[in-house]
Amino acid sequence: MSTTIKMTIDGKEIQAHPDQTILQAADAAGVYIPRLCNMKELIPHGSCRVCTVRCNGRPQAACIQPVADGMVVESNTPELTEHRRAIIDMLFVEGNHYCMFCEKSGNCELQAMAYRLGIATPRYPYQFPHRQVDATHPDVLIDRNRCILCGRCVSASRDVDGKSVFEFVGRNSHKRVAVNAESGLGATALTGADRAAGVCPVGSIIRKRTAYAQPIGQRKYDHQPIGSDIEAAGQK
């Protein structure tokens, strides 16, 4: 039985394991496919849709779609870049993203994705939604103004911490992350050391008293675009 299959991404032939997703295979081959909700250690959520590629011509989320022998994947095309920009624009106008004072600025994956895609400002009108902040926990804060509903906290708390502290409630544009206690995060089983407290791609769930540790210029995405590490590994 063959343990590898062959496929192409943007014309580049790569080898992959049959149990990989397109995203995993691309990462291993040093091809970066932009993504937001996905996180290596967590079950793919498939909600942000940033990693959408054309797979044998059809749109598929690379984080969900398994590879197949002979698969032809297109990712870095003007069409897909345009759609990805549109998605990032949507996330920026959907919430209240005040990067200028956000603790996560410089290390934020949403911001970094916008930088990588060269977005000066979103093309859509800001929605200025009314969102709740929950600071009841001694060590962790939720600022829902910044939440992009990626589901990482839900998955990490359920699947890694075994606590199910977070869950989505409501639907449509009223969907939000809720916590497993009526009075707020402070009354849940969450601790500051939980994985769920450290997986947020944006500044929505942050550990208190850890902010602004790195000066501007030394933060994760100040000089190198998000995904550079994957691409650099591919150069070797």
Binding site: M100, S105, A114, Y115, I119, H223
Partner: peptide, 10 residues
């Protein structure tokens, strides 16, 4: 056309 390091939101 601004290079990567010149598009910053903070």
């Amino acid at each position: 056309e601004l290079p990567y390091e010149l598009i910053k939101y903070d």
